[in-house]
Design a protein around this nucleic acid. Structure first.
Lengths: 223, 223
DNA sequence: CGGGATCCGTTACGATACTG
DNA sequence: CAGTATCGTAACGGATCCCG
């Protein structure tokens, strides 16, 4: 389809001529937080064939959405990095994701392919609402991956890696976390039976779960 | 692909499982302004095969994005209409289009498939900027299609059909209009050689072209 | 005539194997 | 590790035919 254009003089059609192929937008998603290597992309995209991945990367490079560069020494490894044009897809990816998160509830459970997609999912949810009254720095440890969450009363920032001075630590696995985020389980019951282990400031922990309770609330209204 | 799921627990992937197929999002675009018949869709989508269109419509119906209904008497014709879930794609379609309009400049010229896509393109462009100081109601007659544009100092509203009390009339064809919107030609020169014919309040006409000049300006900055 | 369904050649995708 | 090559399968595209 990369070569199979819709031939329509329309912003949407011209965009889809470039990003409408299967896998393409997921590749962009993986690259949005920063450059990645071929192997990382292959691992993050469940079951994409290597030939297809390399073809998509070449198409995206020709379309000017990404560049194949080499990390500075001593790394010296080839990576794929979005150009300004590619990064410009951020808002579009966000809106599509926001529309899509409502299906997570009904989806037969699957674990996120990687912590990045988990971060993106939570960010997208959190970005929909004001966060007055919530203020804390959290260390989320999901299935061994460190995630840092900084809520500053206005917005919540999610990133890979452990925060320096967390108010609280939340240690759990994908499944219970997703259940809570979706509202299929309450934090209290999962904490009680040990599926979620918390430490540090109890109020900070509460504010984390409160965030997603609000997000769900605002979604059911607008949907 | 409708059945070929990415299997990723991620908002973007779940969304693309539903709208990632070829043609699907263009069908949604056509239905966003209102219900349409099978034949209208077939005509609006350049060269989609009828079997593919009917399959997409069935998939979209099963996914709950649209409904097949019958217009009230005396029309009594079957139409396809977006559900609330389908209309929820509006912001996503808008963001993708906004990313895509930048390619209209370089695209080898093609005429819009239909006035609706032209309206969407102009709406998307106009929605990016504040419109202080611009205030007018315009009757745009493009290639025989009536388009109404109401600019109220805050936003510009585009719709099919002629306005009741236009301040001005702009009569032209797709090509010169697109050239002006893209900045490849100035309104003055096209008015001078008769490719654009104007009538009514000259200030209102100027405000229309000024709108797109501002839109282009804001795009080159943010891009 | 509008609204599809059927058939068939072509293209894209997916899995595995293989190479620099 | 980072891809390329090969090949079977599924989806797409165009035309034609069917049915109310």
């Amino acid at each position: 389809m990369a070569n199979r254009s819709y031939g329509q003089y329309c912003g949407l059609a011209l965009a889809l001529d470039r990003i409408g192929d299967r896998w393409t937008l997921l590749i962009v998603r993986e690259l949005l937080p920063g450059p990645a290597r071929f192997g990382e992309l292959h691992q993050a995209l469940p079951g994409i064939a290597t030939n297809l991945l390399s073809r998509r990367l070449r198409d995206l490079e020709e379309a000017g959405l990404l560049e194949r560069t080499t990390l500075p020494a001593p790394a010296n490894v080839p990576v794929y990095e979005l150009t300004a044009l590619g990064r410009g897809l951020g808002p579009a990816v966000r809106e599509i994701s926001l529309w899509g998160v409502r299906f997570m509830e009904d989806a037969e459970f699957r674990r996120p392919a990687n912590p990045r997609s988990m971060i993106m999912g939570m960010s997208v949810l959190a970005s929909t609402l004001p966060l007055e009254g919530l203020d804390s720095t959290l260390h989320l440890l999901v299935d061994g991956y460190d995630i840092s969450i900084v809520i500053d009363g206005e917005k919540a920032a999610f990133s890979l890696g452990a925060p320096t001075e967390p108010d609280a630590l939340i240690e759990t696995d994908y499944e219970p976390l997703v259940a809570v985020v979706n509202g299929r389980a309450t934090p209290d019951e999962l904490i009680a039976d040990g599926q979620i282990v918390i430490g540090g400031d109890a109020d900070a922990v509460v504010s984390f779960f409160e965030l997603f309770r609000r997000a769900r609330e605002s979604m059911t209204v607008s949907a």
